[in-house]
Computed example of a mutant assay.
Amino acid sequence: MRSEATDEVRVAVAHSERATLRVGAVFRKVDADQTRVDAEVEAMAPAPVPTPEVLWRKPPVLALAALPGTTLGRLGGPSTGSPAAWAAAGAAIRKPHEAPLPARTGRVGSGRVGRSIVALAAELDDECEALVRNGILPVGLVTRNRQLAEAALRAWPAAFTHGALRIAHVFVDGDEVTGIIDWSEAGRGDALYDVATFTLGHEEHLGDVLAGYGADVDVDVIHAWWSLRSLLIVLTVRWLTEHGFDPFAPGCGVDVPRSRM
Rank of each mutant, 00 (worst) to 15 (best):
T71A: 05
G76N: 06
V54N: 12
S79D: 10
G69N: 07
T80F: 09
G73P: 12
V61H: 08
T70K: 15
A63L: 06
T71D: 08
L55P: 02
R57L: 01
L75H: 11
R57G: 00
P59M: 12
S79M: 01
G76W: 02
L75P: 00
L62K: 00
L55V: 14
P78S: 13
L64D: 02
V54D: 13
V61M: 02
R57F: 02
P78I: 10
G76V: 02
G73A: 06
G77R: 15
L62H: 07
V54E: 10
K58L: 13
W56H: 12
L67Q: 11
G81D: 09
V54F: 05
W56L: 00
P78M: 08
T80S: 11
G73R: 02
T80H: 11
L55W: 01
P78Y: 10
P59F: 10
L72A: 13
A63W: 09
L72E: 08
K58H: 14
P78K: 08
L55S: 14
L64G: 00
L62V: 08
E53C: 04
L55M: 12
P59C: 00
P60Y: 03
L55A: 06
W56G: 15
T71F: 00
L55E: 05
L67P: 02
S79F: 08
T71W: 07
W56V: 01
P68R: 07
P59I: 09
R74A: 15
R74N: 09
A63M: 06
A63T: 10
P59T: 05
A66G: 04
L55F: 03
L75D: 12
L64C: 10
L75S: 12
R74C: 09
P52C: 08
V54K: 04
G69C: 14
V61S: 00
T71E: 14
L64E: 14
V61Q: 07
R74D: 13
P68F: 00
L62W: 09
R74I: 05
T70L: 05
L64S: 07
G76I: 01
L72V: 08
G77L: 12
L62P: 06
E53F: 07
P68D: 07
S79Y: 11
P60K: 05
G81H: 06
L62Y: 12
L64W: 10
G77Q: 15
T80G: 15
G73V: 05
P52R: 14
L75N: 10
K58F: 05
A63Q: 02
A63Y: 10
W56D: 14
G81Q: 03
L72K: 02
S79G: 12
L64R: 06
A63F: 04
G73L: 04
G73D: 09
T71L: 04
P60F: 02
G77I: 01
W56N: 02
R57T: 03
G81P: 09
P68I: 01
L55C: 05
L62D: 10
R74L: 11
P78V: 11
L64Q: 13
P68C: 00
G69Q: 04
R57I: 00
G76S: 06
G69K: 04
G77D: 14
P52F: 11
L64I: 09
L67D: 02
G69V: 06
G77C: 07
R74T: 13
L75W: 11
V61W: 05
A65W: 12
E53M: 06
A63S: 15
G77M: 12
P52L: 00
A65D: 04
K58N: 13
T71R: 08
